[in-house]
Nucleic acid binder design. Structure first.
Lengths: 147, 147
DNA sequence: GTAAACCCTACTTATGCTGTCAGGATTAAA
DNA sequence: TTTAATCCTGACAGCATAAGTAGGGTTTAC
């Protein structure tokens, strides 16, 4: 069970798409520039997210990516699992049982860890995160205009 | 942020030491056999746990390892952090901030993930886990004697 | 003295992350 | 119709880390 840069980049990118929800597609290049993510790498992640059904792609000039459905219905868990694979740990838990077949005192530890992870990630939806991002952007715009 | 076999092996090993609490040291070899862990690998983990102050070592014949303090005072979190290093994620969170200096909508996601992880792991102490293990062992002894 | 056990360091092998690169396919706009 | 923007795909490389192996050194019970 691991969280890598893929999750971080993917979440940031999809927050940007959530902010631009109803504004048409956003290009990989724009997101990469805005978030300081290597463009070619981000392109791969978005391709994965498209295959997983989280985003749609529009090819050609003025194309880009957009969320495949309402931001409220996409959670951080959806994104992480799409990019990292199922969030069942590397270690023995209820899914990936070790040799002792249930008679292992350590099993509930790992089971509860992954459950907690899923719970927390599931609580964040792209709509709220985008809302938060818009506030930050507004504050940033004010602070720069004051200089 | 990752959970690897080190954590799993370490937890299992220390459960064994908790079961043997007050019974003198247990050798790497015995633990490795009981838990089916590569002995040389386990030895490294126990050496780390000794340096981290979780276990004490007795050298020489009839030597082995024992918990350095009461099993009730050692949590799964202690073990995981001793073996994996601090549980702050690979991704940007409140500790390892990314470029946007607080103005990042994704930050609370990762911060809450690591907090949840720490909470859950901190809830499990070796005394309870050992108790559970003793029950399992007893049940296993009964089921085999019935055959 | 010998065997059991920890101690320490270095090495190996495999995997996966984090990109990079090159070219092709598609489409909007000039 | 041409051009440029953009996604699509697959290959590849460099590096870090996980997971384990190997081997010698030191300490201690018997």
């Amino acid at each position: 069970m691991r969280l890598t840069a893929k999750s971080e980049y993917g979440l940031l990118a999809l927050i940007d798409l959530a902010v631009a929800w109803n504004d048409g597609p956003v290009s990989t290049r724009d997101i990469a520039k805005n978030r300081d993510i290597p463009p070619a790498f981000l392109e791969q992640l978005l391709a994965t997210l498209r295959r997983e059904g989280l985003v749609t792609a529009v090819r050609g000039a003025r194309g880009g990516f957009a969320l495949a459905r309402d931001p409220r219905s996409i959670s951080a868990l959806d994104i992480v699992e799409a990019l990292e694979g199922p969030l069942a740990p590397t270690v023995c838990d209820a899914q990936t049982v070790c040799g002792r077949e249930g008679a292992c005192a350590a099993e509930p530890v790992w089971t509860r860890v992954s459950a907690a992870l899923r719970d927390v990630l599931g609580e964040f939806d792209l709509a709220s995160l985008a809302e938060r991002q818009v506030l930050f952007d507004a504050a940033f715009a004010v602070s720069t205009s004051e200089e």
